[in-house]
Structure formats: structure tokens, C-alpha cells
Amino acid sequence: MYDFHNVALTPTQSLLLNICILSVIVFAVLRSERRLDDYNPIAMLGVLAIFGIAGRILLDPIPNFQPVTVIVLLAGIYYGAPRAVALAGIIALASNFAVLGHGPWTLFQVAGWGLVGFAGAFFADHLLKDGRLQLNRLAGLAIISAFAFDWVVSSSILLKTDVSMLAPYLLNGLLFDLYHAVGNLVFVAWLANPLGEIMLRHRVEPSSQSVSEVVTNR
């Protein structure tokens, strides 16, 4: 019997296969999102987590090119820092534990992406005006976030070496930082608006929270 599981793929074939799988996931997730009730941010965070985990694992063959930073940044803008940090933790832990390798660096990745989520929430008023994303500003912050995230994760070498190693270590990672920054620019340019429109539909408006108390007639 022919053993189909013995077929060896070249790295390029593997990458193309992964992009196909990611496209199917994106399509299926977008279709399923239409069936969600409006104002369901928790379900939307689940959808974003699937995006992030699948994107990070399937795009692993391209160094430092993954959608997680932009997804967490958008989550910070639309849903605030706490949910963005939770999303960062779920994506980092799940993708590392399942495939990419779990270790002390996972904590630094959560901290790095958490910082990105905080930045998104902090600058939300400048990045989202009248429900429209300010793409140029978002692209600028996404590029800065790439370097900030990488440098937070790189600081994990201080667990093993002294501080004098940090500067040359960061310098040597500069090309990978550029891969990340350009990847973020690509994801902002092509994904931020469609993702933002979906996230906006599931954003709990602050005004709706303030009417949560029971009102009685007198």
C-alpha cells in the first residue's frame, strides 16, 4: 500500500501548503463571524486567537513574518489592554506549546505582545477616529512594535549572560527585526481594514456598559 504520509515536501512546497491552509482558516473564520451576534467581543477574541495561532504556526517557514503583532495591536485598539494581553498570552502559549516550543521565552513573548496591546489601547484615540482606522499611524506603530517586541524577547538572554552581551545580541538580530517590521507593514496594509471592520461590529460600546444597573420606576 502506498504510504502517502511518507511524501517529503520541500520548504517552499511546505510554505505554499501552509498558506493554502491558512487561507482556508481565514475564509472559514470570516464566514463563521457573520453568524455571531453583534457586540460579542469574547467570541471575536476567540476568532482572533485562531487567526493568530494558525498564522504564527503556518507562516513559521518565513522568519519573523507572522500576523500576531498586528492582531494584538488591533485588539488593544478595539477591546482595550486587558483583553489584548489575554489574547497575547493565549496565542503565545498555545502556538509554543503545540508546535513551536515552550520555554522561558514564552513569558517574554507574552510580555512583548502584552506591551504591544497596551500601546494599541493607549493610542486608540489617535488610531481610530469615527470608527475608521488611521492606517498610516497604525503602520508606524506596527513597525515600532516589531522592534519593541523583538527587543523585549531578546532581553531573555540576560537570564544566561551579562548585560554587556545585550547590545551586540540586539545588533545581530536587526535583520530579523526588519523582517518583522516589513511583515507588520504588509499585514496592516492588507488585513487591518477588513479585520477592523469585523472587530468594530463586536466592540462593546462604553455607553452600553453604563446602563447595566437596574432602573426602577417610582
Binding site: Q134, L135, N136, A139, V182, L185, V186, A189, W190
Partner: peptide, 21 residues
Amino acid sequence: MSDNLKPLSVIAVIALIILAP
């Protein structure tokens, strides 16, 4: 400018591929 972001991102990818070595 935001309309130019898509072509700009493609140019950035190509430039990085060329300059990476």
C-alpha cells in the same frame, strides 16, 4: 497616503529581499 500603503508594503518586501544578503 493610506491608499498607497498596499503598493508601499509590496515595495518594502521586494527591497528587503534584495537588501537582506
